[in-house]
Design a protein around this nucleic acid. Structure first.
Lengths: 205, 205
DNA sequence: CCGCCGTTTGGACGAATGTCAAGATTTTCT
DNA sequence: AGAAAATCTTGACATTCGTCCAAACGGCGG
């Protein structure tokens, strides 16, 4: 089995990682509130029960904290979507399920999605974020592509677009819906559902 | 006619407005380089031949300067696109012309478009930017819709989507292409052209 | 030539930022 | 229980930020 030293060490790094996660979650709440540009380490610390100095005990600098947050956000993100839309036996049912899923995700946590687009924009200026952002983009693209493929299978046809193409189109709809939802447009969610539902048949033979 | 006083006064405010424009243009260059989050008034001043104190002579505060920049960006933006694609007599020719136009716009000034998406993201946190951003979004949506309508007319069919829907889809393609172009993907522009060309027939009956 | 007024400068201010280190506190191990 | 290691707090640091202001500049009318 594992030696006592190994056990001790494992619990130690686990506690360390647990606290890192705890701090990162609090940081994500602060970031979702204020956005990257306006979130300082001290305001992040205010979202925790600890002092600001502790952040430098668990993270080397601000960039490492933010990138850790992005990675953590991604974990929750893929876990959220990997369930997928399994039980749909007709094309339009799948399209509707996907539309409802995206609309529900937007309604459930609009501030988190706002943060995502903020961080993705920042990654165009700050190269340190690019790898993590690209990973998240890839997993989102996979999620979209699984649905498009499943839709095509149900119709007996083939997709007429590349995975990245499909992702760009869905993402465009989602981002616009988020924008309008945050402004306060009450038809943003319905328009998103409608747009997604109509997008599927546009992407197969 | 205009009185001498009015003439004199007009030249005065014109000089004032000219300098505002000059400063805003320099600010736009700085913003395009660094992004909203990292651009300070002093770094903006370094892009001009003046000192940082001058900015507060022409702009009340930073928000007024930025919003003025956004408005100025919009002017150039609509002027850039209002020419449109007049001379196209077949649907696929129009689609190709539009695809080439968007790809050329991206290649010509990628940093400006990066700034646009940055500022649009910021507007989701800073309500002061929302009106100007919404105006730009509207004019871009009009630009897209004119092309979709023209394409539909050439095919003798009707668009099967709303203007905002079309804009969201095109914008999704463009934003992804920008992202990949900045990362250094050499096929980003070609994929954008292909995606745009293929998007038109998807949006008509 | 002087004085005026629109411009422009450069420095100063308080506040906020990221970072760091020394000390206090808590946990862990023997 | 006591020593050692970890966790956490506190205060300080050098910068940088937006903002403001007194003074200097410069052209133009009197």
């Amino acid at each position: 089995m594992t030696s006592p030293a190994a056990v001790k060490r494992r619990t130690r790094v686990d506690k360390f990682e647990d606290r890192r996660r705890e701090l990162a979650d609090a940081a994500l709440l602060a970031l979702a509130d204020l956005g990257y540009a306006r979130t300082s380490l001290r305001t992040i610390a205010e979202h925790t029960q600890f002092s600001h100095g502790l952040l430098h005990y668990y993270f080397a600098d601000k960039v490492e904290l933010i990138t850790y947050c992005v990675r953590r956000y991604k974990e929750a993100c893929v876990k959220r979507y990997e369930g997928g839309v399994g039980g749909a036996d007709t094309p339009s049912a799948l399209a509707e399920a996907c539309a409802d899923g995206l609309a529900a995700a937007l309604e459930e946590a609009p501030l988190m999605h706002r943060l995502w687009y903020d961080l993705r924009s920042q990654s165009l200026f700050e190269a340190a974020f690019r790898d993590d952002v690209a990973e998240i983009d890839d997993s989102l693209q996979d999620m979209i592509w699984r649905n498009v493929r499943a839709y095509a299978d149900l119709t007996g046809a083939d997709p007429t677009c590349a995975p990245s193409e499909a992702y760009a189109l869905f993402d465009g709809l989602f981002q616009q819906a988020l924008q309008r939802h945050i402004i306060g447009a009450e038809n943003a969610l319905d328009d998103l559902r409608s747009g997604v539902r109509k997008l599927f048949p546009r992407l197969v033979s």
